[in-house]
């Protein structure tokens, strides 16, 4: 059994009413914000299963949108988020039943160009499990260097060499790919955020398409 903090039992301080459907929704939004990491004008949320059926009474829609706009889980303004942002952002929601998806699950499509999918797995904990259909694994508890590249041998060692030079400890490393020799993803959880220089150096590696430094959630 992995040791946990006592504050996993007392906390979070959050707006209600549900840690999975409200706080988890806010955190999924926040995580999508950290991943996208750029201004946007339009967002579409596709809510699945229990998010779709009970989201209305739990403020799941409000939580997702507020998180994407950077509100924290305990911000009392979340319940009025629709009034607050009025027409500044073009947002929409779709509700879908799909048993192949986790019970509390969402796709967040930002500006029609990036689709970030994640689950709320209970007690406010979340995981982002794909970006634009590429499998990833980010839970927001660590600063994570996320990258997509052409699947081929040697990438892990090249990237970890770069990180090592900055004396940053790698907590975990997770790779996924859509097919052998296709596009692969790497999520490296770090004990401190990767400096911009690291991101630049990784970007400069051959066959790397996309690199971003995803900040952990507070």
């Amino acid at each position: 059994m992995e040791q946990q903090s006592l504050f996993s039992v007392i906390s979070p301080i959050m707006v209600g009413p549900s840690s999975s459907h409200t706080a988890g929704a806010v955190r999924l939004g926040l995580m999508a914000r950290n991943i996208y990491n750029a201004p946007f004008l339009k967002v579409k949320f596709i809510l699945y299963n229990s998010f779709a059926t009970t989201g209305f009474g739990h403020g799941t829609d409000k939580g997702l949108l507020a998180g994407l706009l950077g509100y924290s889980v305990d911000d009392s303004r979340i319940k009025n988020i629709f009034d607050i942002i009025k027409n500044e952002i073009d947002y929409s929601f779709e509700y879908v039943e799909d048993i192949s998806r986790f019970p509390n699950s969402v796709d967040i499509i930002i500006d029609g160009k990036r689709k970030i999918s994640g689950d709320s797995i209970g007690a406010g904990e979340i995981r982002i499990n794909s970006i634009d259909k590429f499998p990833i694994n980010i839970n927001g508890n660590y600063d994570t260097l996320l990258m997509f590249y052409k699947d081929k041998p040697g990438m892990i060692s090249r990237v970890s060499d770069i990180i090592q030079k900055y004396e940053i400890n790698i907590a975990t490393l997770h790779c996924g790919r859509n097919s052998k020799g296709g596009i692969a993803s790497m999520c490296i959880e770090l004990d401190m955020p990767a400096k911009d220089e690291i991101v630049e150096k990784v970007k400069a590696l051959k066959d790397v398409f996309f690199v971003t430094n995803v900040r952990k959630l507070k």
Binding site: I10, I13, G16, S18, T22, S76
Partner: peptide, 21 residues
Amino acid sequence: EENLRMGRIVACPTAGSCGIV
């Protein structure tokens, strides 16, 4: 009730049971 109206509470251990402790 504060939890239900999307007010700020402390989950303890969960939001649904936030009033007891």
